[in-house]
Design a protein around this nucleic acid. Structure first.
Length: 200
DNA sequence: TGCCAGGCCCTCTTTAGGGCCTT
């Protein structure tokens, strides 16, 4: 069974192209439905956090001022992830910050990202929306702690990832639902998913 | 200080527009 790295960033805003930077990162390594290791750190990238973002995340400028420098945290995070496949909720968001922060350090990112939001839109169309917290509640997944902190969100995304694997396996009778397969599932229209399993 | 993205997906679509989702 493969190990995946479930990643979540808290940031100063929505886009590195506006100058936004990461403020916190959490990574869980998930294997066989279990968390086997964790990495979490606040980080100081020298960018002020807007008040509305602090209201959302609870991460303050004082917390960031006391945090280790972004370069050290991201180097450690990059080593922690290594060449493992990565999972995130709305992965396009975390992927662009992952790549932007590593680019500051001249570290190339070769990580392949799977997205629990794209998968959930296909698997759980009955959900009123596809926010991480809504899906966790809808599916009765474990939920401990305050949403919009990196480790809580990474753990919720990890539970969702495992549930998606289970549901695909049960629905389509597939033994090994791995990261590579799910990156294919997330790209095809919902109605074409059965054909993907029927014809490989 | 406040401003700002972008890919996906649906539909009253495809020569487009707008909501969702992430902080």
């Amino acid at each position: 069974m493969e190990t995946v790295a479930v990643l979540d960033f808290e940031t100063t805003g929505l886009s590195p192209s506006w100058g936004d930077r990461a403020t916190e990162i959490a990574i869980t390594l998930v294997r066989d439905g279990q968390v086997i290791d964790r990495f979490q750190s606040l980080m100081n990238a020298g960018r002020r956090i807007p008040a509305e973002v602090t209201q959302l995340t609870g991460i303050t400028n004082a917390m960031i001022a006391a945090a280790p420098p972004v370069a050290k945290v991201m180097r450690d995070a990059s080593k922690f992830v290594g060449s493992m496949p990565v999972v995130a909720h709305n992965a396009s968001f975390d992927k662009k910050f992952w790549e932007a922060e590593l680019a500051f350090l001249s570290i190339p990112s070769l990580s392949v990202f799977a997205c629990t939001m794209l998968l959930s839109r296909r698997l759980y169309p009955q959900s009123p929306n596809h926010r991480l917290s809504t899906l966790v509640q809808l599916l009765g997944l474990p939920n401990s702690g305050r949403a919009h902190r990196a480790m809580v969100d990474a753990e919720m995304a990890g539970h969702l990832w495992c549930r998606i694997q289970q549901d695909i396996s049960t629905t389509y009778g597939v033994q090994s639902v791995n990261h590579k397969l799910l990156t294919r599932v997330q790209k095809v229209p919902r109605v074409k998913i059965p054909a993907l399993f029927k014809f490989g």
